[in-house]
Design a protein around this nucleic acid. Structure first.
Lengths: 186, 186
DNA sequence: GGGGATGTGTCGCTTATGCAACACATTCAG
DNA sequence: CTGAATGTGTTGCATAAGCGACACATCCCC
């Protein structure tokens, strides 16, 4: 692990910006939020914003990633294996995250949000896979991680559309097939 | 009014320090609080502390002054006249402030605290006096302000010792003598 | 079509904050 | 008494943040 100490000023300022952005997005939709609004709310200089983020879309990505990661509570099962429980927890975190987003108004940015979710999931899955399969081929694990992230995300979309059962129940039904495979040509 | 724009970084940092100090003083008494504790809590550099405050005693003064001013809610009757109501409100604010302090542990610093209270009261009274007596002699008003501040403070000490009645009732009994004078040699 | 108003990125310079190190004081255990 | 540990103030230098200005883009009203 490359341990880099981050300047505390950077941490503070990033937090100010992110918090202000999240606060503002309670009230208006993304397309109506300007950089000026954010920096005014955060009481920082506009130039400072551009020191940390390319533009407002960059902020959207990073802010959502962070909120999602907090939802995922990554640290807590960073060392867990990829069990049924872990799987269910991740799935539930994703559905919770999407629920929290549907309150805010990010219309027109669904694709961006979807991509962010999948990217974060992919990183998470890959780390877990590598930990238990250090001997296996890297490319294969990458591909599995990609498929899992798309799969989980798709399942969450489907569950959101017609949610008859709990997220846990919904996903656990599928877990055996993921764990033991679908067994072609039995 | 000399309108000076204060650098927002200064405002932020001062607030961080003050808040951390107040938070820490909930838990330990003043003599056990170090500069390191404060800067650690505030997540700022120790050198930055000395950029804003002479030492920890300086911080004590400024922090207490600020808390007292908030208690006094100065802005709200900045334009009031020195009426019975205003007088009662100020007295109540002082007793409240002392009550809030007695929860924290500032043993050994009673004199400092007393001085801070009197200084703030003096400034407040002087401003109110000047507003209604712009023609009168400055030195006389200063002296009256001094006497009022000591008087109010003393009354609050006395009231704290044996408080049979409400602060309002307690102070209002004396207000006529302040308002109309004690009339020597009637 | 023109032009004012508003937002966006970027720049050079100033100022506040971070950091590491220092000398000094105080405390406390051996 | 000694010396290790901890806190205090201070310094010089590195870096983040503030500020004002600029050119450019949009929008929208006349």
């Amino acid at each position: 692990m490359a341990e880099i100490k981050t300047d505390p000023r950077v941490i503070r300022t990033r937090k100010l910006i992110m918090d202000s952005f999240i606060a503002l997005s309670e009230g208006k939709e993304f397309k109506d939020i300007t950089v000026k609004d954010i920096t005014a709310e955060a009481m920082i200089n506009r130039a400072t914003f551009y020191y940390h983020f390319e533009d407002i879309y960059d902020l959207l990505e990073k802010a959502l990633s962070e909120v999602l990661l907090i939802n995922l509570d990554v640290e807590n099962y960073r060392n867990d294996e990829l069990t049924e429980e872990t799987f269910a927890k991740i799935f539930e975190a994703v559905t919770n995250f999407q629920k929290s987003l549907s309150n805010r108004c990010h219309r027109g940015y669904e694709d961006t949000i979807a991509r962010i979710i999948r990217e974060q999931l992919e990183v998470l899955f890959y780390k877990m896979l590598v930990r238990k399969n250090e001997d296996k081929e890297e490319r294969a694990l990458k591909t599995v991680a990609v498929m899992l992230s798309w799969g989980i995300y798709g399942a969450s979309v489907e569950w959101t559309r017609n949610s008859q059962v709990s997220p846990e129940e919904y996903i656990k039904a599928a877990v055996p097939y993921i764990e033991h495979g679908i067994h072609f040509n039995i």
